[in-house]
Amino acid sequence: TIDDAFRAIERAIQAENEGRYREALKHFLDGGEMIVTAAEKEASQKVRNLLLHKGKEVLEWAEHLAEWILE
């Protein structure tokens, strides 16, 4: 659900702030994927587009974090 997705993102932010970057990455990926999944089930085109945009933002952040971890 969207609530689960945002809880995962909150955990990711907390982990990132505490320097637990790999854990943060996992939570960002989980949250982003949950948002995209919820968007695919959404009946309203406007809400679907907003959710897809937010999911994409979260997944892009996860990608940047992963690249930073690997440096």
Results as ranks from 00 to 15, higher is better:
64 H>M: 12
34 M>Y: 06
47 V>A: 06
42 E>G: 04
68 W>P: 00
31 G>L: 14
20 R>Y: 06
55 G>A: 15
5 A>Y: 07
27 H>A: 08
55 G>F: 14
21 Y>V: 12
3 D>Q: 14
37 T>V: 13
52 L>F: 07
49 N>T: 07
35 I>E: 04
6 F>P: 00
20 R>G: 03
33 E>V: 13
40 E>A: 13
23 E>P: 00
24 A>H: 02
46 K>E: 14
16 E>M: 15
37 T>Q: 15
54 K>I: 15
14 Q>M: 10
43 A>Y: 07
68 W>F: 12
6 F>G: 01
11 R>T: 05
5 A>L: 12
31 G>V: 11
55 G>E: 03
70 L>S: 06
63 E>L: 10
32 G>V: 15
34 M>E: 02
10 E>Y: 10
65 L>V: 03
41 K>N: 12
8 A>Q: 08
67 E>W: 13
47 V>C: 13
57 E>Q: 13
9 I>M: 02
58 V>P: 00
24 A>F: 03
70 L>G: 08
54 K>Q: 06
10 E>T: 07
41 K>H: 09
15 A>G: 01
56 K>Y: 11
20 R>D: 02
2 I>T: 04
66 A>M: 05
55 G>K: 05
63 E>D: 08
49 N>Q: 11
41 K>S: 08
28 F>D: 00
47 V>S: 04
19 G>V: 02
17 N>V: 12
53 H>F: 10
34 M>K: 08
6 F>M: 12
67 E>R: 14
17 N>M: 12
42 E>K: 04
68 W>V: 04
43 A>E: 09
34 M>A: 10
21 Y>P: 02
37 T>N: 11
68 W>A: 06
16 E>H: 14
27 H>V: 03
25 L>A: 02
31 G>C: 09
45 Q>H: 10
70 L>C: 15
24 A>M: 03
35 I>W: 02
36 V>S: 05
15 A>Q: 02
23 E>L: 02
62 A>D: 00
40 E>G: 10
49 N>P: 02
4 D>I: 08
25 L>H: 04
15 A>Y: 11
45 Q>R: 09
7 R>N: 10
60 E>R: 13
36 V>G: 04
22 R>F: 13
67 E>N: 13
62 A>C: 05
41 K>I: 06
17 N>D: 04
4 D>R: 05
63 E>A: 15
33 E>A: 14
66 A>E: 03
17 N>I: 14
38 A>R: 04
44 S>K: 06
57 E>T: 09
69 I>Y: 05
49 N>A: 09
26 K>S: 06
43 A>F: 09
65 L>K: 00
26 K>D: 03
21 Y>H: 01
23 E>A: 06
70 L>V: 10
51 L>W: 07
